[in-house]
């Protein structure tokens, strides 16, 4: 590994600009990784390990790494962090960087498309199951509300997401 201060400075600038303001407070204690369900599920580059790589300036090198998309946004890392790093914000900042570079994992693209089309990132057709238990087939959510879907599309089209040209 080569220690390149320019790369370190650039990485920290990008992560901070994307919301990971606390990255330099990290002392690598590992509490975030100890509590992270994504780490338990086997994603190798979450929380402590991701932060360490970013502090070493390894931003582009990790652009294709899909670990960040394993973050479930549970925010337990932020609760346990003794230094106020807010690790989830760092992970999300890295995700935003990846998204801006169109480096989505395939799983992430599917959920973005679901969100754009139905207003739900994770969507499965509920009709059959609901009819069996005697509920109305359609949920009172955006999934069956054309006007609501249109509103969500308008929001997404006008967000940085829209600029990526995914939809």
């Amino acid at each position: 590994m080569i220690i390149d201060q320019n790369k370190i400075d650039e990485t920290i600038k990008i992560i901070k600009a994307n919301g990971g303001h606390g990255i330099q407070k990290c002392v690598q204690c590992g509490a975030c990784s100890a509590i992270c369900p994504g780490v338990k599920a086997g994603f190798p580059l979450l929380c402590r390990a991701l932060i360490k790589d970013l502090l070493n300036g390894l931003l582009e090198e990790n652009i294709e790494n899909s670990s960040s998309w394993g973050c479930q946004a549970c925010n337990r890392c932020t609760e346990v962090c003794p230094q106020g790093v807010r690790p989830q914000e760092v992970v999300f900042a890295f995700r935003r960087y990846q998204a801006n570079e169109l480096a989505f994992s395939t799983s992430a693209v599917t959920s973005q498309m679901n969100l754009y089309e139905t207003g739900h990132a994770v969507f499965t057709d509920p009709k059959e199951a609901r009819r069996k238990v005697g509920l109305p087939e359609e949920t009172p959510t955006s999934a069956f509300n054309e006007a609501a879907q249109q509103e969500i599309r308008t929001l997404m089209d006008n967000s940085p997401m829209g600029e990526l040209g995914l939809f």
Binding site: M1, I2, Q28, A49, K52, D53
Partner: peptide
């Protein structure tokens, strides 16, 4: 050596 990254360092 960077033990936290598991990487050797040379500069």
């Amino acid at each position: 050596y960077d033990m936290e990254a598991g990487q050797s360092i040379e500069y």
